[in-house]
């Protein structure tokens, strides 16, 4: 499994991108967010994978998301001893429910942690953390 080279400056874990996920990560690098939709049964899924988890069909289309959603659940993390995170405490980890109805684990940024609330409308921001990897995070909708 190919692993992105981690530059010295960025110490948080980087994704182990694989052949199934590469198109999704490449789109994110272009600052585009996609979900997969089954061409047989119409089921939406995230994260990307080769077969539909409802009917096992391999016939898949990519659906572009507008990037809007709401915070479904979150936590303000005050303790994480892992490199990269221990220098950036506190940070907000959240499940965001996209307007398309699918949940993603992410970080809430550009917002003081004490102002983060469940149900808050948010929008995707694309964080180019290394030359090879971009992460989808969310900030309060503007």
């Amino acid at each position: 499994m190919p692993q992105e080279k981690e530059p010295r400056a960025y110490r948080k874990p980087l994704p182990h991108i694989d052949e199934e996920s590469r198109p999704w990560w490449e789109a994110v690098q272009r600052h585009e967010l996609y979900l997969q939709k089954c061409r047989e049964c119409g089921d939406l899924r995230f994260h990307p994978r080769a077969l539909c988890t409802s009917c096992m069909s391999p016939r898949t289309e990519w659906v572009r998301c507008k990037g809007g959603g709401r915070i479904y659940a979150f936590t303000v993390t005050n303790q994480n001893q892992a490199a990269g995170f221990r220098e950036s405490l506190p940070y907000v980890m959240a499940w965001v429910e996209l307007d398309e109805g699918v949940k993603m684990l992410t970080n809430i940024v550009d917002c003081p942690p004490e102002q983060v609330k469940i149900g808050m409308p948010v929008e995707a921001v694309f964080d180019d953390v290394t030359p090879a990897v971009t992460l989808v995070k969310f900030r309060p909708a503007r």
Partner: peptide
Amino acid sequence: PCDQYEFPFGPTTVG
């Protein structure tokens, strides 16, 4: 496969 969509965001067991 799921790990790549979660670990970059700093999940802890407590979190």
